[in-house]
Amino acid sequence: MNVQFKKGVLELCVLVLLDQKERYGYELVQKISEQIDISEGSVYPLLRRLTKEGYFTTYLKESTEGPPRKYYKLTDVGRNYLQELLDEWNQFSNGVNQLIKEGVHDD
């Protein structure tokens, strides 16, 4: 898939995953890379940026194995932003799907 396109979608994926529950970085990276082929390291700059913009808060939680993990929690601002992105995404993908359907129908 087009690289430019994927990066915007990555943001949406992170927001959707955090809307379900609070998660730590590694977990987010695994969840996304199960579905989409990404350079896993690029999720961390994204998480930092969105945290700085106030979409997430973070806290450390002890883990039964290994060092404490940094969890990300979606804020209200983040949730509103997710809603905006979701609306845009739905509008966009509906449009493309509609065009594909018409295209296939015409053949």
Binding site: I38, S39, R49
Partner: peptide, 9 residues
């Protein structure tokens, strides 16, 4: 920075 290439395969 947000939407264009950087770090993706």
């Amino acid at each position: 920075v947000r939407f264009l290439k950087g770090g993706l395969k």
